[in-house]
């Protein structure tokens, strides 16, 4: 008994030492190096939750952050929708933000529903999402502040080229959905409470069709990229954001069926700071969250967003919208 116990204790000491060494590398908070921002019209994170901050005029919020300041807390958790990753946009924007501000971003990608849920649990500092109704609920509940409109693109209905429901070229998405239901053609749904899923469900509601439970309606509970592949393999219709479709078009056998039906098919992206005051006991990175919101509407980021994908796909994947109101596109 003597020997194994000694070895066991040694092992425990060794592991503890390793753990301490590993955790010692995490950035320590240094109260003396608070970043100083010149001006800001963004809501102060310490103010109590308010539901009136749905759209912040972004152009005036833009400030240049000196690259030399070191943030007090470096780690910034970004809970984001998958579409900005799958298209590759975030891989460009995040390094820009990091080198400009010194923050270290940890992006976690889920559908907008799950992305907002992570914020609602106080496990993220800032969100990038595209599910307006869920966002407004989140902000109204006091969980989010500085909700800022920064970009849009659009949804399209895609389907197999043989088009069994005969919807190709229709101008009304609602009418097209009605036709798919009448024909009983296969339709694949995200089924994951993401922004796209929420949009799709709202179109079924407008069309006054109970799609759930129908034999032709399949909920896959998966990301957009995976769902496009499923729809492509199974020869079904689906609703997708245009950017994910363009980025993967070459590996899919899906054609565009319905497009440019506005405002139904508008897809708006917002950046929202998680309210640091809403989670007693959890320390959020308030400065970092605010800096990220400001960054997303800065001229540099907006230029990247507007140009993104043009060289690779011959068309932009996103349209930069800093300073605009969503009402500009006929939605709220």
């Amino acid at each position: 008994m003597k020997f194994p116990r000694a070895l066991f204790i040694n092992a425990l000491i060794g592991i503890t030492a390793l753990m301490l060494a590993a955790t010692g590398c995490t950035p320590a908070a240094n109260p003396n190096t608070q970043p100083t921002f010149v001006t800001s019209t963004l809501e102060n994170p310490q103010t109590p939750p308010s539901a009136t901050t749905t759209v912040t005029p972004a152009t005036t919020a833009v400030t240049t952050i000196p690259a030399t300041t070191t943030p007090a807390v470096k780690e910034l958790i970004l809970s984001s929708t998958t579409s900005v990753r799958d298209s590759g946009l975030m891989d460009v924007l995040i390094p820009m933000f990091e080198s400009e501000t010194g923050y270290k971003v940890k992006p976690i990608y889920n559908g907008s529903g799950a992305a907002i849920a992570l914020g609602q649990a106080g496990q993220a500092d800032v969100l990038v999402v595209h599910s307006p109704a869920a966002e407004l609920t989140f902000v109204a509940g006091g969980y989010g502040i500085n909700r800022t409109f920064f970009a849009h693109n659009d949804y399209i209905v895609v389907g197999p080229s043989k088009d069994p429901a005969g919807i190709k070229g229709m101008t009304s998405t609602v009418a097209a959905f009605k036709k798919i239901a009448a024909a009983g053609s296969l339709f694949y749904s995200r089924g994951d409470a993401s922004g796209t899923d929420t949009k799709e469900k709202s179109i079924w509601t407008t069309a006054a069709i109970t799609q759930k439970g129908q034999s032709w309606y399949v909920e896959a509970n998966t990301g957009m990229g995976d769902l496009l592949r499923i729809a492509s393999e199974k020869g079904g219709y689906t609703l997708t954001d245009r950017s994910t479709y363009i980025a993967q078009k070459s590996t899919l056998s899906l054609d565009i069926m319905v497009e440019n039906d506005f405002p139904t098919l508008i897809n708006t992206y917002h950046v929202i700071q998680v309210n640091p005051g809403a989670f007693p006991g959890i320390k959020l990175n308030a400065e970092g969250g605010r800096a990220f919101v400001r960054f997303m509407v800065s001229p540099e980021a907006q230029r990247v967003i507007a140009d993104f994908g043009v060289d690779k796909y011959g068309q932009p994947l996103f349209y930069a919208d800093a300073g605009k109101s969503e009402a500009f596109y006929g939605t709220k």
């Binding site: 590993a22 995490t26 496990q123």
Partner: peptide
């Protein structure tokens, strides 16, 4: 290990340390 978890103060979520654990 997430922020309000019992070991949240280590701040190791989304790091290689968490994966090693």
């Amino acid at each position: 290990i997430w922020r309000n978890g019992p070991l949240g103060f280590f701040h190791i979520l989304y790091t290689p340390t968490a994966m090693i654990l």
